[in-house]
Design a protein around this nucleic acid. Sequence first.
DNA 1: TGGGTGATGGACT
DNA 2: GTCCATCACCCAC
Length: 181
Amino acid sequence: MQLLGKVLFTKVGDEITGGMIVETEAYNGITDKASHAYGGRITERTRVMYSEGGICYVYLCYGIHYLLNVVTGLMGVPQAVLIRGVEPITGVDIMLKRRNMSHLQMRVSAGPGVLAQAMGITRVFNGKDLKGNEIWIEDQGRSFMQSEIAVTTRIGVDYAKEDALLPWRYYIKGNHFVSRR
DNA sequence: TGGGTGATGGACT
DNA sequence: GTCCATCACCCAC
């Protein structure tokens, strides 16, 4: 929830793009059945989630889409926040080009897979420091009232049974770049 | 070593 | 609403 309103930037080659984070989901380590680290699993893929917070966890989903997470826990505590939606601010034309679109509309960056595509995020970003010069997050002072933030269950985690009911999805009410169910 | 599956999105009926 | 592309990962053998 603290990430909402902050601005995520990436630099790929000479191309800089940035977008305000408008939708996130929390994944809570070893006790969360929806998390890749559920039960304390440590594998080559999930290893970065056990690092100190402040780095990226990027993985391939459904063989097609890259999903960007911010690792948030302490060393050894695998917690992460999935970025599900950003509102394009900087380098909008670059994002449109990557998405093969001609004009700005919500589907440019509403959803974790398309967001990664729009910002040029691939698996090479996995493990990168979020204070680096390839990907970083700026606090530009934008904040939201509690009443402007919606809290719901997470998307696409029905397999997690009772943990799918946890209210760990946060988004800016009314923002066009929030993904749909 | 092999098969089931997924933190999705787009195309199609 | 339904179908499915496409592959890394993971766990059971």
